[in-house]
Amino acid sequence: MNPDVVQRAYSALADRYVETLGTMDVVHPDDLRLIERHLGRRRGPVLDLGCGPGHLTAHLHEHLHAAGADVTGIDLVPEFVAHARAIYPGVRFEVGSLTGLDRPDGTVAGVLAWYSLIHVEPADLDTVLAQLRRMLTPGGSLVVGFFDGEVCEPFAHTVITAHRWPIDEFVRRLSAAGFEEVERAQRGQEGRRRPHAVVAARAV
C-alpha cells in the first residue's frame, strides 16, 4: 500500500491512537520479554521501524544505551514522531518510511518491526524484508509482530486495510530474504485483540 495513504490515515487518528495504544501498559509482558531477549544485548545501531508513539523505542533505549546500543525510532507519521520527541526527549526519532531507509549495508545491529509490516502488500513484502536484511549485520536480530491468520488475507483494520499472515508462511518469506528463525510465539483472540504472532529471526 502506498506509504502516503497509510500516513494520512494514521495522521487523521493520531491523537486517539496515542491515547489508546501509546504506553507500555498495552504491551503484553510475554512480548516484551521476547523483544528484550533478542534485542536486549545488541551493540550498535538498533532501529524501531514504525515506532508509532515511541514507547517501545524509549524502552529499548533505556535498556540498551548502557550496553552500547544506539536506538532510533522511525515512523512515517509526523504526529507520532512529534509526540515521541516531546515525551522522550533523550531518544532519537525520525520521520521515515520502510521503503525509503538510507542506512548503509550491514550497519544495523537489530530491528524491531512491531506491527509495522501489516500494511505492506503481500507482493511487496519480499522486497521490504530484503531491505531489512541488507541493512543488518550478519547475525543481526529482527523481531516482527503481526496479525496471525490461517491464510494471508486483507481485513478492515481500525485505521486502514491490513493483512493477516500464517506464521509458517511469514517465516518462509523471512528465510527467502536471508533470515533464520530463532523463536516464535502466538496468541489467540483476547477480547478485542486479534490473534497475534511474533517471530524473532537472525540475519544469515
Rank of each mutant, 00 (worst) to 15 (best):
155 F>Y: 15
108 V>N: 09
202 R>P: 05
172 R>P: 04
72 T>W: 00
25 D>E: 12
164 R>C: 04
16 R>S: 12
5 V>L: 13
128 V>Q: 03
110 G>I: 08
177 A>Q: 11
138 P>V: 08
127 T>E: 08
162 A>S: 03
59 H>A: 14
85 R>C: 13
150 E>A: 13
14 A>Q: 00
128 V>F: 11
51 C>Y: 02
95 V>Y: 00
30 D>F: 05
91 V>W: 05
172 R>N: 06
93 F>I: 09
59 H>D: 12
165 W>A: 12
111 V>G: 00
53 P>T: 00
168 D>H: 12
25 D>K: 11
201 A>D: 09
17 Y>H: 12
160 I>M: 08
25 D>L: 13
22 G>P: 03
46 V>H: 03
60 L>I: 11
176 A>M: 02
79 E>T: 00
118 I>Q: 01
29 P>Y: 04
99 T>H: 06
75 D>Q: 10
48 D>C: 06
19 E>I: 01
202 R>W: 01
172 R>D: 07
37 R>M: 10
31 D>W: 06
119 H>C: 10
97 S>M: 13
49 L>H: 01
54 G>T: 04
35 I>E: 14
63 H>P: 01
51 C>W: 00
192 R>S: 15
65 H>R: 09
55 H>G: 01
54 G>I: 05
66 A>F: 06
142 L>A: 08
51 C>N: 04
103 R>P: 02
43 R>D: 04
25 D>V: 09
93 F>H: 13
83 H>F: 11
6 V>K: 01
32 L>P: 12
60 L>F: 13
196 H>C: 07
168 D>K: 10
6 V>G: 07
5 V>K: 11
10 Y>R: 13
118 I>H: 05
157 H>L: 04
160 I>Q: 08
131 Q>K: 14
5 V>S: 15
126 D>H: 07
71 V>D: 01
137 T>S: 06
176 A>F: 06
183 E>S: 13
196 H>M: 12
197 A>S: 12
138 P>R: 14
113 A>Q: 03
140 G>W: 13
118 I>G: 10
23 T>P: 02
2 N>W: 03
166 P>K: 07
30 D>L: 14
199 V>H: 07
73 G>V: 15
91 V>A: 02
49 L>D: 03
29 P>T: 07
103 R>A: 11
83 H>V: 00
15 D>L: 00
198 V>Y: 09
51 C>L: 11
115 Y>K: 06
128 V>A: 04
199 V>C: 10
49 L>C: 11
113 A>Y: 09
188 G>E: 15
201 A>P: 07
42 R>E: 15
140 G>M: 02
148 D>F: 13
92 R>Y: 01
98 L>A: 03
72 T>V: 15
165 W>K: 02
50 G>R: 00
33 R>C: 11
112 L>Y: 08
98 L>R: 05
115 Y>F: 14
10 Y>I: 00
139 G>T: 05
179 F>Q: 06
152 C>D: 09
160 I>A: 15
15 D>C: 00
133 R>C: 15
128 V>P: 01
173 R>V: 06
59 H>Y: 08
199 V>Q: 06
26 V>C: 09
3 P>Q: 01
92 R>K: 15
165 W>G: 04
165 W>Y: 10
97 S>L: 08
103 R>K: 06
79 E>P: 01
25 D>Q: 14
34 L>Y: 07
20 T>N: 06
34 L>R: 07
67 A>W: 08
159 V>Y: 03
184 R>Q: 14
123 A>I: 05
115 Y>L: 10
76 L>A: 07
74 I>E: 07
62 E>R: 11
127 T>R: 09
111 V>M: 05
